[in-house]
């Protein structure tokens, strides 16, 4: 996209090409929708043991391509997740947007390159997510016990590298090589 000349200098063919390339901005969102769909797999376990793939996807895109995962997009993805999981509407929406905001804040305040210690960051974000979900479910009038959510913390951490690999794959398909090499803002 960056190799194109400014809008007024483009030929009509280049303008067409420019607009045809815009759909790629939806790639991060679509890849998280796929993860949400995976989370509705027919695994009927009594414990919330399936990893929070959608949250991890949002996290990976936020740290690697912040411009493509704004908080309003995370909010929309959370709404889709709430509808898909039959949760109170607004639970995942609030928490996904909150996760994006927290990562932004940490990044801004600490001037850290988050890609260097992404696993501890994932641990912190998933822990906050589970605590937040527990609190917000109580707010929504459907209290849940806190301890079983620990299983999800463990499996989510284990699944984190897989989600990163998945996002790298999607990124290379959609944008070409060099995932994470440019901030993308």
């Amino acid at each position: 996209m960056r190799d194109l000349p400014p809008w007024r200098l483009m030929t009509p063919a280049e303008r067409r090409r420019h607009w045809q390339r815009q759909w790629r901005l939806a790639i991060p969102g679509l890849s998280v929708v796929v993860l949400i769909f995976l989370m509705t797999a027919p695994l009927l376990v009594p414990v919330p043991v399936f990893p929070q793939l959608a949250l991890l996807g949002v996290l990976v895109w936020t740290t690697a391509r912040p411009g493509l995962m704004p908080s309003w997009l995370a909010f929309g993805l959370g709404l889709i997740a709430d509808l898909a999981f039959g949760q109170p509407l607004g639970l995942d929406a609030t928490l996904f947007a909150l996760a994006v905001a927290v990562v932004r804040l940490v990044e801004m305040r600490q001037r850290l390159d988050l890609r260097l210690f992404d696993w501890p960051l994932a641990l912190a974000v998933v822990t906050l997510f589970e605590l937040g979900a527990w609190a917000l479910m109580t707010l929504a009038g459907q209290p849940i016990p806190l301890l079983p959510l620990g299983w999800q913390l463990v499996t989510s951490l284990a699944a984190y590298p897989l989600v990163v690999a998945y996002c790298i794959g999607v990124q290379r398909l959609g944008f070409g090589r060099g995932f994470g090499s440019e901030p993308g803002r």
Binding site: W72, F75, L139, G141
Partner: peptide
């Protein structure tokens, strides 16, 4: 602007949750 949008979005989510209650 980003911070304002984030705050608005999170507030909307909380309002949705209270409506769900």
């Amino acid at each position: 602007l980003g911070a304002v949008v984030s705050g608005a979005v999170i507030a909307t989510g909380l309002i949705l949750l209270i409506i769900a209650r």
